[in-house]
Design a protein around this nucleic acid. Sequence first.
DNA 1: CATGAATGAGGTTTCATTCAT
DNA 2: TATGAATGAAACCTCATTCAT
Lengths: 233, 233, 233, 233
Amino acid sequence: MPLSKLFCKQDASVAVKRERRKEARPGELLDAALDLFVEKGFAATRAEEVAARAGVSKGTLFLYFQSKEELLKAVVRENISGRFKEWNDEFLKFEGNSTEMLTYCMNIWWDRVGATKASGITKLMMSEAKNFPEIAAFYQQEVIAPGQALIRRILQRGIDRGELRALDLDYAVYTIVAPMMFLILAKHSAGVCVINAADLDPKKYIATQLSAILHGLSTAADGSSPDKEKKST
Amino acid sequence: MPLSKLFCKQDASVAVKRERRKEARPGELLDAALDLFVEKGFAATRAEEVAARAGVSKGTLFLYFQSKEELLKAVVRENISGRFKEWNDEFLKFEGNSTEMLTYCMNIWWDRVGATKASGITKLMMSEAKNFPEIAAFYQQEVIAPGQALIRRILQRGIDRGELRALDLDYAVYTIVAPMMFLILAKHSAGVCVINAADLDPKKYIATQLSAILHGLSTAADGSSPDKEKKST
Amino acid sequence: MPLSKLFCKQDASVAVKRERRKEARPGELLDAALDLFVEKGFAATRAEEVAARAGVSKGTLFLYFQSKEELLKAVVRENISGRFKEWNDEFLKFEGNSTEMLTYCMNIWWDRVGATKASGITKLMMSEAKNFPEIAAFYQQEVIAPGQALIRRILQRGIDRGELRALDLDYAVYTIVAPMMFLILAKHSAGVCVINAADLDPKKYIATQLSAILHGLSTAADGSSPDKEKKST
Amino acid sequence: MPLSKLFCKQDASVAVKRERRKEARPGELLDAALDLFVEKGFAATRAEEVAARAGVSKGTLFLYFQSKEELLKAVVRENISGRFKEWNDEFLKFEGNSTEMLTYCMNIWWDRVGATKASGITKLMMSEAKNFPEIAAFYQQEVIAPGQALIRRILQRGIDRGELRALDLDYAVYTIVAPMMFLILAKHSAGVCVINAADLDPKKYIATQLSAILHGLSTAADGSSPDKEKKST
DNA sequence: CATGAATGAGGTTTCATTCAT
DNA sequence: TATGAATGAAACCTCATTCAT
């Protein structure tokens, strides 16, 4: 965890002395900050609360982070570190058909991201992007772009294998992205997406969405070409 | 020094000092508030800014709205709550099949809500719900619940007419809701949903989503029952 | 009631036109102001409340009184107008002994001042004197000084007639003043003088005080000279 | 620009910047608050003024007291509430007769309360009671009630010992309370009680009042029963 | 390194006062 | 004259940030 790079810029030359839990401090603060920023929003979270939850004093927080804004940036950077490379490799090796692949993909994504604290970052970015264009750009570059690229490759693979229809990938990616995004927001913005978020079973939600995405809700599995509808718009 | 000078553009010819327009004020303030709340967030918007954009002074705002929070409630009421009844009536009269209905429904929703300023409220609520539980409850009751009920009725109608598969409505509604929500968020949270929001053609997005939702992305329009996949979860 | 003199200074030359209830307005405002200032204090009373209670609009109040402070001054001036001359004459004619005179005096004072709204002025002055030295001086000159002079004459008369002990009038006046003042404050500052102000019967209070003042609480009506105690200080 | 410079006089030699004196702060703030509240009234005193007089900044005040109102409560507690127990004990031990006791009592009260800054609280409560019912209730319970109870016990003791007439204590207490209250008000509401407050010698005032209360102003120390007057009302 | 007392800019809200009608 | 919509100074209180210890 090379966190030190992120905040210690001016005093890189300082000799390292006592190392009790010094190294752990920034991480604890980032964890606390993520929790609180997601839970209460950035503006509504007081710096002292973050410090308290991390078990340190207010002053210590500002020892590690120049400002509350810098703390937010660090939180985002820390929690979106490129896991995409490993996933990409993993998916490259995957041998099932597209149905299996997308099913595996969405479920594994929920287990590894959606169900974890990291999913709060999405909510956080959505709320604060306007106020922090710099980290929004960073987030787009580090998360959105690789994420969409990954999904495009999966869809392209399906098309190439003749398992998926010929899709305009620029729009088809959102068929996969939108349900995932919505699930995260439902989890973190209780009430404004879903009536009772606690009652929503993520796995069943994913299954339902996959079923629709792959085979449609329609009973017309016969001759009625799916392309017909496009014209009716 | 009246701040109004800084913002009023349309009536630069008038000697704008203490115009008395009791009727028009609330509407102007609500418009200004919607713009700013969506643009900067509720907490980050100062009451004085809202007043200035409406071309009045700080004090005038509090003449019409008891508090900043009450102003937000009024914004929600003004832009969403009152419109469900007419939509409901409209959809009840619709005579086409489910494909036509959902297509009509999503497109008309985009034209009347998604493409308008009112769509910013969704984003707004998502960001501020945690901090203003009272408003969140109000929004859930006035917007989320009626909206989902409307979609459930449309899906149920399709099932009853044999046009849609037998669906678990508790989960199927999100097949419709998620893409709509995502489209709004893409519009208002530039960058954190979509790479380049400006390039996303809403109508084409809706068409793609509808095509997927209704008929699936899969080429397997044959014997492969859509129910099979559920087991693979 | 030559109230006009009090507020109309700059436009005394203006011709008098329509006289509906114009003349009565200032008086109604002063009445309302007295009530509210006494009830809630000067600072806590809003100008609009005064106007509302007088049945006019906020603007009208400022038509008659230059400012809220001027209104207060007018209230005080209006309600302490020299009733002392008539009382003085009345007391000059009184023919009873000192006990009868003081008894009559305190009771009549309660009936004519203490029990009326005018008594609120005392409370008002006490609270606001520091903030309005000008009217405090006015009040002292118009009320305190004549009041004390009156009491001094009554006591002096008693001494001259041999009914009262030889008193140092500079201090003896307060033997009469203090109980009266306390009674008014008990009435207007509920709770901070008396536990339950409503239970205090003014006439019984006055009788008790008079009994003490005139004859003492002590049973030692015998040889123990009242002057003895003075030495023990 | 630290306002403290404007008020701090005693420590001009110290480079007064950010002195840390957690222990001393509350006391300094309470002293400053008492002074200003008494001098200008509660509502008219700005929180920042209190802080400035205590030599700290606005924020520091709210570090120690949740609100301005809470500060007032603390002022009352600090200066009055806690002292009744010791006084009560002291008076229980007193062995003189009622004349001696009341004389001792009123003089000691003046020395310990009346002559000190604490006496300003009485005036303060009188002015603000209506606007802060919670504080008024607190004051009644903590100060008025115990104070009256103490005086009742003293009078009852005198009656039991045959030194005082059979009194209706519900009214007789005010024979003692009223002069004390008046003396305080004379001191703090200069001009509206007494012509020239500076000329009033408290000790002489108390002696005069005691003399009257105990033995009466009347020369009729003979057979004329003090009860006669009651009928003449 | 760590603390937490101290700071003060900044936000919401109130209300005396003005002025166009 | 009378109105009441509009104004904006000022008050309370919060909290990010600093700095003496």
